[in-house]
């Protein structure tokens, strides 16, 4: 029974946030769209003539775009598979009765709080370095030839690093969902003679479904934008072997200073992210009604 007066006050309280976010969204978005149809390179001062769809044509037909698109997909799907499967197993494990469970949970969650540049550099130098890394020492001790992870399997190595960072997130959310599972339901199934596997298949998995959807969608949003890990480990290389869409656009805009092509790439990235976002919003919006 809010009065008109209260409504007006509420509107006044909400408006700063709305105006700021609207500005933050619309102004850069319009500028990106505008730049994307100009021939505009910061290295070539002078006119910025209208270029139509030239930049889009250039960006989309550049072989690097196809590579980057595939790399982006491989990176996102690879990390999702590792974190969802690993996260489910870890959550199952941590949900079991045990001593000092809080301590083990803390150890598992810790990587999430490590800033991306630190975790990328620690993995790159102290583990994956072909001469001085721990893996190199281990391989040598086992009589194997040293393996230069970031040169020979750059994308796979980055998937490994990023998975390490995101495994805690998936674990934590799946564990939270698992702990809200009604134990009476499980006991009832047990009494009815359901084995451990079918209990997991028919009770736990459906219950985790929604949490897993949220994990997948949120991780996808972040994983589409993986940047720092690539910048400090491989710089997108060798060649374009570990360049994703975000890194490609960064390279066009801030390394080659091509504002036009970089902006066209930005528009493409926004469209791709929006496709994911629509699904995410549905999942979260449903919950808002509840």
């Amino acid at each position: 029974m809010a009065t008109t007066h209260a409504r007006a006050a509420a509107r006044l309280m909400i408006s700063p946030s709305v105006i700021l976010l609207l500005g933050w969204m619309l102004i850069p978005l319009c500028m990106t769209l505008y730049f994307s149809v100009l021939r505009y390179n910061l290295l070539m001062p002078g006119d910025t003539p209208f270029a139509g769809i030239e930049n889009y044509q250039y960006f989309l037909t550049d072989p690097a775009f196809t590579t980057a698109l595939i790399n982006t997909l491989v990176l996102v799907v690879g990390v999702l598979v590792v974190t969802i499967v690993g996260g489910t197993l870890l959550a199952l494990l941590l949900d079991q009765p045990m001593w000092a469970s809080g301590i083990w949970r803390i150890l598992v969650i810790a990587p999430f709080f490590v800033m991306p540049t630190v975790s990328a550099l620690v993995w790159k130098n102290m583990f994956m370095n072909p001469v001085n890394g721990l893996f190199a020492h281990l391989f040598k001790a086992l009589g194997l030839a040293p393996f230069d992870f970031l040169a020979q399997a750059p994308l796979l190595s980055i998937i490994g690093i990023v998975s390490w960072q995101w495994l805690p997130f998936a674990t934590l959310i799946l564990l939270t969902a698992m702990q809200s599972l009604d134990s009476e339901q499980i006991e009832a199934a047990e009494m009815d003679g359901a084995g451990a596997l079918s209990r997991f298949r028919y009770i736990t998995i459906p219950h985790l479904g929604r949490a897993a959807t949220v994990v997948i969608l949120i991780e996808t949003i972040f994983l589409l934008s993986v940047f720092a890990e690539i910048l400090v480990t491989t710089n997108g290389g060798p060649g374009n072997a570990s360049t994703n869409l975000t890194y490609l656009i960064y390279a066009e805009s801030l390394l080659r200073f091509d504002v036009g092509v970089g902006s066209a790439g930005g528009v493409v990235a926004i469209i791709l992210a929006n496709i994911v976002a629509i699904f995410l919003m549905r999942a979260i919006g449903k919950n808002l009604d509840a």
């Binding site: 976010l21 933050w24 969204m25 102004i27 850069p28 978005l29 500028m31 990106t32 730049f35 949003i221 589409l224 934008s225 940047f227 869409l245 975000t246 656009i249 960064y250 805009s253 801030l254 504002v259 970089g262 902006s263 790439g265 930005g266 528009v267 990235a269 926004i270 791709l272 992210a273 929006n274 994911v276 976002a277 995410l280 919003m281 979260i284």
Partner: peptide, 14 residues
């Protein structure tokens, strides 16, 4: 929430 989905790299240049 939807503003959060805007990929940063899309507005890097402006």
């Amino acid at each position: 929430l939807s503003t959060k989905m805007l990929p940063s790299v899309g507005v890097l240049v402006p």
